[in-house]
Design a protein around this nucleic acid. Structure first.
Lengths: 160, 160
DNA sequence: CCGTTGCGTTAGTCCAACTAACGATATACG
DNA sequence: CGTATATCGTTAGTTGGACTAACGCAACGG
């Protein structure tokens, strides 16, 4: 399997990336993540959105209205960046930002009907993009990949 | 499996990250990569290095001396960034930069004895860090994880 | 000889992740 | 009560990685 590439690429050059580098999980992870990010960002840009938009809308849809700070915790977006994301979403009326009468420090963010519609579109877009990302894997392998990622992430999220 | 976390975490709050978000491979990938990067960067910083240093030194060790442009191709570092990396490495005498007599456009980069020693240290450091990264996985699972990553990356590298 | 290509280098863009600090409000404690 | 402490939304700024543009120079191909 190692020399699968030797089939279509003459190995007469010492140009190839050294094996030591290619096998490090950390490196594979970061490289694949870069490509994945690019794929996702480009796909979402075509749909006039960013990935943070999706994260916020999905969170609102699934868990209901919330303050900005709570949204930050749910989605992992820093609350300093949340401001801008919500500005963009509110500008397009995908989301409503209203002061919380119970706690005047808070804003209550609610997803709008348009927001729900937009979210449905984005869900479709992301399904397709993730399909493209995982294209070389069989369904079983995809599940396993997701499961491995989840376990690793959970571990490092709890140990943070 | 979905509510594995409910075991040690009372689910009376709507704060949890929505499932839809948690299952997207692209998202898992990017989040895990962020944490992995942080782990690696901090670990290497403690050893007074950066990940690009390792990539360059390893490439030199495994494939021999090369021009800067070729190093770029081997490692994936942009040649505009390679300059700075080589400056740092040359400053510490881990690497030697000499004009190529055969092609006066080129610099030939050679790893020094100190460079080799430094590389050995970094290899150890990275072994440990990757162990930490993959801690929750069994050896078989680690192999599989690496294999899945490799296949995905190869696919998207060729389709680039 | 001239156009193209590859080289090293400089500068600068873009974006994500992250920190610091602010004013305003809410909560806890003495 | 009052005062400390914490939380909220917000602004500004830093850092680092990925990436582009353009330069002068050298090599190669006609």
């Amino acid at each position: 399997m190692i020399r699968a590439e030797a089939a279509d690429m003459p190995d007469d050059s010492p140009l190839k990336t050294p094996d030591r580098l290619r096998r490090r999980a950390s490196r594979l992870l970061s490289q694949l993540s870069t490509r994945s990010d690019r794929l996702i960002n480009e796909g979402l840009a075509r749909a006039d959105a960013r990935k943070w938009h999706y994260a916020v809308l999905a969170s609102l849809q699934e868990c209901g209205p919330a303050s900005q700070a709570e949204l930050s915790r749910r989605t992992g977006i820093y609350r300093s960046d949340m401001v801008g994301v919500l500005n963009e979403l509110a500008e397009r009326d995908l989301v409503e930002r209203a002061p919380d009468p119970d706690d005047r420090r808070r804003n209550v963010i609610t997803i709008s009907t348009q927001g729900r519609r937009h979210l449905r579109r984005l869900d479709k877009v992301l399904d397709d993009l993730n399909d493209e990302l995982l294209a070389p894997l069989s369904p079983a392998e995809r599940d396993q990949f997701v499961q491995l990622l989840t376990r690793l992430l959970d571990h490092h999220a709890r140990t943070s």
